[in-house]
């Protein structure tokens, strides 16, 4: 089997405000990735719940450090009406300059409703440009997630969950079935041979490797994927090619 090229799509970086698990420095993060053999990671800031703009700035600053193109960032958006973030075109230009290739949001901590009224302008632009949106804030919040996807059915989005460990098939499968741009990340999905089941049912393009670092280490889910029972092509796609493709497809 060829060597797998891992691209972690669920990875947080930076200090945290409330004592959560944290990897504070970029060198520490890269050393951890080296230890487990993860070549690249899509990272979001650990403290984004405590400030979209401040965490965006910290992440952008960190990405100016040397990392040999191993890291890309996901930055946090807010409702357009308060003019805390610029218009989509300007925002995407800033993302491009700052090494950001994906979006995330934290509506429940930042206290707004995640719908078309609040986020329509930005997320319609993101849909059009196929910019991936990480749905970490919706982990385990099924009514909110279902409502959000009804509002933005064409959005390219990745459900990342590292809070629960029980398989959420009863909630995840309807979303994979009904939203073709809905992607599922594996860090909270410990179902025996379940990754292969999802790939068999929904195709090898829809499932992405993620670790949940720093709460989880990157190694356990790597071995789970390595021995998932999938064919080599599917395994390579889940390990990293799918995320690579999504980020390349994004017009930023």
């Amino acid at each position: 089997m060829p060597e797998l090229d891992f691209f972690d799509c669920n990875c947080r970086f930076g200090s945290a405000a409330a004592g959560e698990a944290a990897i504070a420095t970029l060198s520490e993060l890269l050393a951890e990735m080296d230890y487990y053999g993860v070549r690249r990671a899509l990272i979001r800031h650990n403290n984004l719940d405590k400030g979209a703009l401040s965490s965006n700035a910290l992440l952008a600053e960190a990405l100016t450090q040397k990392h040999e193109a191993r890291l890309v960032g996901a930055c946090c958006i807010l409702p357009a009406q308060c003019e805390e973030i610029p218009e989509p075109e300007e925002f995407f230009a800033w993302m491009r300059q700052s090494g950001m290739r994906a979006l995330t949001l934290s509506p429940f901590e930042h206290r707004y409703l995640p719908n078309r009224l609040t986020l329509g302008k930005m997320l319609d632009a993101a849909s059009e440009r196929k910019v991936p949106v990480l749905l970490n804030a919706f982990a385990g919040k099924w009514p909110e997630l279902y409502a959000f996807l009804q509002e933005f059915p064409k959005l390219t989005c990745i459900y990342v969950e590292s809070v629960g460990k029980w398989g959420s098939d009863r909630n995840i499968r309807p979303l994979l079935e009904n939203y073709q741009n809905f992607y599922f990340e594996t860090s909270g999905y410990w179902v025996p041979e379940g990754i292969a089941d999802l790939v068999e049912k929904y195709g090898n393009r829809r499932i992405l490797y993620g670790s949940g670092l720093p709460r989880y280490n990157q190694g356990s889910s790597m071995l789970q994927l390595r021995h998932s029972g999938m064919d080599a092509i599917s395994m390579a796609k889940v390990a990293g090619e799918n995320l690579e493709y999504l980020l390349q497809e994004a017009e930023i």
Binding site: W190, G219, S221
Partner: peptide, 14 residues
């Protein structure tokens, strides 16, 4: 049947 053996063994090896 809740959790995958390789995930858990991987967690020990990691």
């Amino acid at each position: 049947p809740w959790f995958d053996e390789f995930q858990a063994i991987g967690g020990v090896l990691a």
